[in-house]
Design a protein around this nucleic acid. Structure first.
Lengths: 77, 77
DNA sequence: ATGCTATGTAGCATTAATGCAACATATATG
DNA sequence: CATATATGTTGCATTAATGCTACATAGCAT
């Protein structure tokens, strides 16, 4: 693994964030990252570090495994 | 967050690995990383990417949250 | 003693993850 | 109309995470 090459991590950040009525900016502030970073993650343009993933999960009241997966998520929750 | 600066992620990789009787080399092979990488992680010299964390958890039959935490682990399991 | 395995340490190179800035678009609202 | 918010896109700079090599040490077996 040469630094996560071509290895997406599927996520449900956008759904979870919307469920809480948060904007990317607001989530970014809670998590402590740039708001663009949330955008990149939601578009799955790259995968987060573990710390970021844990912080996001905490901020969205979810388990890491509920938000992130190596395999695609099914449709309904 | 300027790329996880001074932000360790505590982990129990060594304990979980030992519990399965695996060497770092063997775990590294299962996970698909260099065996030094496992060493760095066990010594908490840096924190893994989310993909790596998930792969390690999978290889050790653990949940990500059982293996990694932003706060130190208590002693007894 | 020799060898093998497991681990630690140090250094160097590469690259993905982040920060950040600028601009565009769409939507809603005054 | 203006203007504010939310989002997407592009590009550039920085740095941590990873790969890899080499060497050292300790233990355990021959």
């Amino acid at each position: 693994m040469s630094r996560n090459p071509e290895e997406p991590v599927y996520n449900r950040i956008e759904e979870a964030r919307a469920a809480l009525g948060l904007s990317r900016q607001e989530l970014a502030d809670k998590v402590g990252v740039h708001y663009q970073t949330i955008g990149y993650l939601e578009r799955e343009e790259y995968s987060p570090s573990l710390v970021l993933a844990i912080r996001i999960a905490n901020s969205l009241n979810k388990e890491v495994s509920e938000l992130f997966s190596l395999t695609p998520f099914k449709k309904g929750k």
